[in-house]
Amino acid sequence: MSEDTPQQDDHVPALDQKQLYSLRSFRVLLVEDYGFMADLVSSMLREMGVGFVKTVSSAKEAQILLTQYNADSVPRDHFDIVITDWLLPEISGATLISWIRDHKLDSIKFMPIILCSAYTSEEVVVEGRDKGANEVMVKPVSAEKLSKRMLYVIDNPRPFIKAPSFFGPDRRRQDKTFPGEDRRKIQAEEIETNYEQDEKET
């Protein structure tokens, strides 16, 4: 996971081959305790065409809404992406990410998460990645950064890894070669998920 500039695959389609994405059906949950910033980012998302943006000011509220919408309601009402601030009162963004990744329901635990952080240190970026964030967006937020993060999450869905000490998007970038011996083996047994269409290697 990069800190600010998404890394592109070697094979990047030409612009005229790319499709214009409509975000009208997207449902985004924005977790930001600072009202001014929440208004600003939610307005930006709407201008970009995101159909539904719900803003909450605490991780606790996010947990309640995710449980309500992604567990109890029909799939079309599920939130698709969580954008969360790192510094939140009471329950931090890091703890919220852990809660999401540890959740028993697939409709919550596999959610794409974009972490917003004012901290640019590698330590925070690595911690965000290790908690299971898909992407990190460094503040100050701009429309360009936000759209790049959204695009990267759409176009580069990394497989999820379940290891003894980690659950989250693959921390190895797909476009980077891993220098060591890959000990992640495909096994024959299938493990059931709530999504019939999911493919799974173990």
């Binding site: 499709q19 994405y21 698709d80 869905p157 999820f160 890894i161 999911d198 799974k200 290697e201």
Partner: peptide
């Protein structure tokens, strides 16, 4: 035993954009 599982998931976000 490595005990590492890999989940390849359907790209629901891309489907929602209307793209193939």
């Amino acid at each position: 035993a490595p005990q590492v599982e890999i989940f390849h998931r359907v790209n629901k976000l891309k489907k929602k954009t209307g793209a193939s």
